[in-house]
Write a protein that binds this DNA or RNA. Structure first.
Lengths: 341, 341
DNA sequence: CTGTTAGCGCGTTCAT
DNA sequence: ATGAACGCGCTAACAG
């Protein structure tokens, strides 16, 4: 079935197959073009010849005509964050599933954005997905102004007419406040980042609003330069110092929550959940580890990925449609850090 | 400088630039071809016109001629493992740096390998990088038999004539044994996976050999189905049950070590490092977290990435060279889990 | 339903 | 150094 003799010869082309099958080049092309009209007999002949020769369509040549490469750029940063890594993996998986090819472009802030832009534009990517704490503005603007379909994940501050997928941050904050309240906490605080992204600041604001509605004192807010483990660690320290009577904390990401939990356990005398209850957001894998067992608000990254790719394909079909904003539902996963004694 | 009026018009081509600059199309082509001969004056004219029109070379068309797409497939699985995620990120970064485009293909075991192979071959990838606990054999074989340059990371069992980059697993195991010995441990054990990859089994074997050389009892070995957090957790349980006098453990990956540490802390009365010392391997980010503070053997993923891309480019230059095997040095990072009291 | 023809955007001869 | 012509592998529009 397979012949391996021509390792270093030129790749087999549609013409080769055509000759071998005794048909025309177009017949071959049509056989491999989804919506085409070929008789069953010729199709069979072509398939046989193609199989014997080990023929594969050259998508590069095809996309030169179709004007769509089916390449999709994933611009991602902060992949040390487990949530981000999982996001990227599921996105890539979903893209492959839908017959797109994910090309991964790591990009921290504004580090060599021109190179990334070049990769995107010179390869005629069909679309771009951006997921990053600090999305590279210049990349987004360039794509938008050139009409390259783009989907932003959990970004809201960019006012441009761009498709977005975001989890229900509004509800997340409210759920967090409500959950802590139900568990008997009355002195709440939130732990976040100095320069929060849109998503993260919405979480804090809705958390604060919900606290007010529930008739609690205005919650404290403590933040660190970066929303990672160390950030959670240091913010937790600040919290206990400046707000000693805190009895419930909402960490805007699980990644920070892990740091906070370790601070409480290792550097303070507060016992979680007895003296202090903690709730996070994202439901990263680590949250379910026995060492943390963190109550959190789940974002289903698999669903998120589906929504993102869905938004992208919708945009392909209708490039002129108004910007699409999709919301992903959230739900509480109750674990040990908010248990009542 | 930039003109954004033609969002939905066809992309600007080299011919457009040629007309605009009053030169021939070849002149434009030459201007954007690294090793070409163009006079400074025409080059300047071309550049000006290109800039005004927002021209960018169409790499897809270019690669149709060059027969090299500069696309490099990264076939990766188990990206929940932080070490793997970091590896992928650094690889992608290095590839972009070297002007390749990483296309990310998540692949667990033998799940739809034909789709992945299609993505690789139909897009004429210049090369493939494989990193996975369970590398999809069929993909590798297909690529090898078709002469697609491939680099395997930390894989050794595949005998084919393929380039490989591996960290010094041999030394890792010896260092682990020696380090535990130096810290006063005498009853050692290793924690690993039921079906270890090449790398992981070498680590265990060299660990055992080193124990013997040091005159210690033969170390125990305990394993779990998967080399992840939960695997480390359950293997630790088995270890304490079957080998109660153990005083030093070598976890073949940090990912497992985290699970083991949590088991010791939460489900046993052994104190680390007083009753039991632990050393891991990889130096993932979590190992440095205050909650774990794990002594480990570092693999520099940045360096690894450089080696991988280096091996790939070397292969491009000389397709017929004998298989290249590159070793990455390791070093101990001493933290709390092996401290002496 | 089939084969023929004409490009897609580009690099590279081959003359000048 | 420069322009004209050709071809990379493929699809689409056109005739039969």
């Amino acid at each position: 079935m397979k012949r391996e003799e021509e390792e270093f010869s030129r790749q087999v082309t549609a013409l080769d197959v055509a000759k071998h099958a005794g048909v025309s080049r177009s017949a071959v092309s049509r056989t491999f073009t989804p919506g085409a009209s070929v008789s069953a007999s010729t199709r069979e002949k072509v398939m046989k010849a193609a199989d014997e020769l080990g023929y594969r369509v050259n998508q590069l040549a095809r996309s030169l005509i179709n004007k769509r490469s089916d390449l999709v750029g994933i611009v991602a940063a902060n992949m040390d964050n487990p949530f981000r890594a999982q996001q990227v993996e599921h996105m890539a998986r979903e893209l492959v599933e839908q017959n797109f090819r994910p090309i991964l472009l790591p990009a921290e802030g504004e580090e060599n954005p021109s190179r990334v832009i070049g990769m995107l534009l010179e390869y005629n990517v069909s679309g771009v997905i951006v997921t990053s704490d600090t999305p590279p503005q210049s990349i987004c603007q360039e794509c938008v102004s050139l009409g390259v379909p783009m989907v932003l994940i959990n970004k809201g501050e960019i006012d441009a007419s761009v498709d977005r997928v975001l989890l229900d941050n509004e509800t997340s904050g409210r759920i967090a406040a409500r959950h802590l309240y139900d568990k008997g906490c009355r002195q709440l605080a939130s732990i976040g980042s100095d320069k929060p992204s849109y998503s993260l600041s919405v979480r804090v604001k809705s958390f604060q609003a919900a606290c007010k509605e529930l008739g609690m004192n205005a919650p404290g807010h403590f933040s660190a330069p970066i929303s990672d483990y160390n950030g959670g660690f240091t913010a937790a320290e600040a919290m206990l110092r400046d707000m000693p009577d805190v009895d419930g904390a909402f960490c805007i990401t699980d990644y920070m929550a892990l740091g906070s939990l370790d601070y409480f356990r290792l550097r303070s005398d507060r016992k979680v959940p007895d003296d202090l209850k903690v709730i996070g957001c994202d439901d990263i894998l680590q949250a379910s580890w026995a060492g943390y067992d963190l109550t959190t608000i789940r974002q289903d990254t698999r669903l998120l990925a589906k929504q993102v790719v869905g938004a992208l394909t919708a945009r392909f079909k209708n490039p002129l449609a108004p910007p699409d904003i999709r919301m992903v539902d959230v739900s509480v996963v109750e674990r040990a850090t908010t248990k009542t004694s």
